[in-house]
């Protein structure tokens, strides 16, 4: 039993991945890099959902259904986010988040 997989392992992996994604989202200047970091955070959440589904309720597949919905919403989010970034780039010729300051007081 000592070597069996434990849900805690997957939760720690998911927490580490979420922390890396959050670091990327906070510390990057490029808007596309921030989108990529948000994708990493959503993937971390998916690992958690599927791991809990396997170890706690293997008969019901609710966690996997949630993961599928998260993937769907993430695909829509990255498509729309890239469209907005491209639209801003065509007006402003920059994707640097620190230059998006025209709504600043």
């Amino acid at each position: 039993m000592g070597t069996a997989l434990n849900p805690s392992y997957f939760m720690v992996l998911s927490a580490a991945l979420f922390a890396i994604g959050l670091y990327g989202a906070l510390s990057r200047k490029n808007a596309i890099a921030v989108l990529i970091s948000i994708e990493i955070m959503l993937t971390a959440v998916n690992i958690n959902l599927v791991a809990i589904n396997k170890f706690l309720t293997p008969e019901a597949f609710i966690g996997q259904i949630f993961a599928i919905f998260v993937i769907t919403v993430a695909a829509a989010e990255v498509g729309l986010g890239l469209a907005i970034i491209i639209a801003i780039y065509r007006n402003r010729h920059t994707v640097d988040l620190d230059d998006f300051n025209w709504m600043k007081w």
Partner: peptide
């Protein structure tokens, strides 16, 4: 893909977040 000045703020923040989640995971009774 440059980094901005906030990485100094972000590194301890996400480190603290990871430690908190790890401690909660270790304490939780699954």
């Amino acid at each position: 893909n440059p980094i901005n000045w906030r990485f100094k703020l972000a590194a301890p923040l996400v480190g603290g977040l990871f430690i908190v989640i790890g401690l909660l995971t270790a304490k939780s009774q699954l």
